[in-house]
Design a protein around this nucleic acid. Sequence first.
DNA 1: TCATTAACACGGG
DNA 2: CCCGTGTTAATGA
Length: 217
Amino acid sequence: MDTELVRNQIQMAYGDRFEAALLDEMAATALLVQFSPGDVLIDIHQYIRRMPLLLSGAIKIMREDPDEGELLLYFLERGDTCAMTLACCMGEAQSEVRAIAETSGALAMIPVSKMENWLGRYKSWRHFVFESYNKRLTEMLAAVDSLAFLKMDQRLLAYLREKAKVNGSQVLTITHQDIAYELNTSRVVVSRLLKAMENDNQIRLHRNSIEILFALN
DNA sequence: TCATTAACACGGG
DNA sequence: CCCGTGTTAATGA
């Protein structure tokens, strides 16, 4: 009956992409993992033995440097998987990124041996793996562009928009310091830019939270 | 010019 | 009181 539950969740997130036989196999071998905001799902240098498929909720992928601090790369949402885990699973390599739960949600953990088996047997799985690499590469480029070409005010705006989207809320519970960490800048800058955005009526500031007034899309 | 670091006052929980 | 916030002054890239 637990399998039944997993099957349903996998169907919800991946039903339009995989054939029924593959969905069944997934449900049979998957380990369901529930997570809460802030949980560290994968840490840097960790070996990955099971591949996670995101069923619900959102996960943020962070890059970290011991000297330079951390930096948000991108968010994962339902139906996504992380290209890093694909590479790590197949290559027995260590993770170069950290995955932290942004919201609560659930993961289906697939044994590595199964994924290799499916690569040969299911076309839809091969497509999924390639598509995932593609999507993550695109998002990576967006992160690089943001770093290289956008000023901090633009990066902050893009960050708030993404954050509101994955959380499905106009009100973000976060401090200026937390934002500064994720964008790898100082709180002074974040506070100043946020204040300017509030004066432009784009947002409203409260203690521990930010209300988004501009339209999301 | 714009970011960072340090320092300080304010105030809400 | 503690912590998040808003600001300034000094310094650096």
